[in-house]
Amino acid sequence: MVWLIGAALAGPPPEELDLEAVTVWEDRAFLLADGPKGCWVLRGEFETRLALYLPMTVFSRAETDTRVTRGTFSGTMRDGTWESFVYSVPVVAARAAGTYPLPEGEEIWLRPLVGALDDGLVTRAAGDIPPETAAATEADGGSVSVSFGGDSSSEDAVNAMRASIDDWWDATVRTSYLRWDRDTDSLGLVMEVPTSDARGAELVTLTATFPGAGPHATRIDTVLPKRQVVFEEGPIKVKAMNGQLHLRGRVVEGLLLPTTERWGGVIGAMGFTVGYEQRMAYTSAQECP
């Protein structure tokens, strides 16, 4: 029944939609990655997964180790630049859930795709303190051993999603086209960029999805080639595999806000294989007072 309703609602593209006007949609395709205008306190939860395959030797069996770390984060973003970013890994909860109880003093490499961020800003809250409490304590001049990092400026901030897009945006050859998805009533902008000038080179695919051909793209996906040799010298070969970045958003009161993001990839070299993935879900966006 639900399917029937969906099928009935899905339809042809709006009459005024020009599927040839690619540049119009290119200009607004990746605004979600820039973050909302104004000042916002964004909170959420995250999960990182690190996987390592160790090949067998005469002295040890082959094995795959996986480490999952979960926690929460909170940060202030002003006009697309993070001014603070604190995360917390509750050790007790981690032990109970069987995830990695990140020891005190150890940090993880956590980087959001939304907004520009200076690496120096990313700080782990002490103990099990929730990030928002840590942020408030810091704002009050408290002495809890929590800091937001030191010297940083917007010049040092990098927008990871933008950077990954720009890497391919400036390619000498790229193919862009629009397609209407009747099932989801959405417009997709697809950009394909070859990874090299060689004939038959693998493609990087960037996709932005505009629900109802509206002004905001609420889904951005960058998918790198399934496998790609990034270094080769004699018998040593390094391969990058499964690289991908995904960003999802929602329009609320005219504002384009992030909801989930995910990025990761796998590197294989010398028989070892290591993979990393980071997922973040934004739980709330609060306007700065």
Partner: peptide, 28 residues
Amino acid sequence: RTFDLSGGLDDDAGSALDDFDAAVEDSG
């Protein structure tokens, strides 16, 4: 203004590690 964005970590996006075993096969 405060907006509730919660929907959990699960999304419809692909995962780089779903195919980790295949990636292991591609290595070495």
